[in-house]
Design a protein around this nucleic acid. Structure first.
Lengths: 120, 120
DNA sequence: TTGACTATACCCGCTGACGATATAAATGGC
DNA sequence: GCCATTTATATCGTCAGCGGGTATAGTCAA
């Protein structure tokens, strides 16, 4: 039985926080706090998710099927029972791709009108 | 006397509608309805601003100094007195550039983690 | 054992997006 | 000349995204 997912386009534009979360989970599964740290590190401290934004976003993403909660820890060495691990789903990747195309298109339009340099 | 503008970074992330409006005004001054039409045409009908979004966004952009209202019509042939013309300010261009850098950076991060193809 | 860090979670207020609605002038076909 | 459509600006009410602040509690090192 396959779950029904809507057209990825209907979820756009993706909230900024959401896109950062999907990027953080793209190359490996992570727990909530690790997602927050990864985003801070990757953006050189420029983007800092508050706890409220992080967990309300995760909750929504689980409901929409972009993320899934993993049953067991991917790191057996760590026995911190509080941690809940999350992974990106195939549908989540589809939505992220659609959002990336939208962003690329916006930048392309900004170049066409001369708002930003072409080399950017 | 120079007006005081905040650091462009503090206005980021820019609302989606705002960025589209700045793109539409980058190469020429326009009145409200023309902005709406331009966005629809440029995005191939994918992005359609509602009147509420359009005029509330314009109002905010005027208050923040990203747009300015023009005293006289740039097109003397047209005597439609209803039209109100707007132009992008130097500060508006600065903010748009900062937003473009932010978007570029997000896409770059998405490529690094393999969320989206590198050629995108 | 105390304080800093890790981890998850919710309440509340602000802001942006938008459907619906209102108003009215310009336009074009018949 | 008349009426429908398009052009044009504007507001109201609602909902969602987001973050500040706060709460709770386990982990870990000094």
């Amino acid at each position: 039985m396959t779950k029904e997912f809507p057209d990825p386009e209907t979820l756009l534009p993706l909230p900024t926080a959401t896109f950062h979360i999907l990027v953080a989970l793209a190359d490996r599964d992570r727990h909530g706090y690790s997602i927050m740290q990864d985003i801070t590190a990757r953006t050189d401290g420029k983007v800092r998710l508050s706890a409220a934004t992080l967990y309300s976003s995760i909750r929504r993403l689980l409901e929409q099927g972009l993320l899934e909660e993993l049953r067991e820890s991917p790191d057996p060495d760590c026995q911190d029972e509080r941690r809940r691990y999350y992974g990106i789903t195939g549908f989540g990747r589809e939505v992220a791709m659609a959002e990336a195309r939208r962003l690329t298109s916006m930048l392309s339009q900004a170049r066409e009108t001369g708002l930003i340099p072409k080399k950017m």
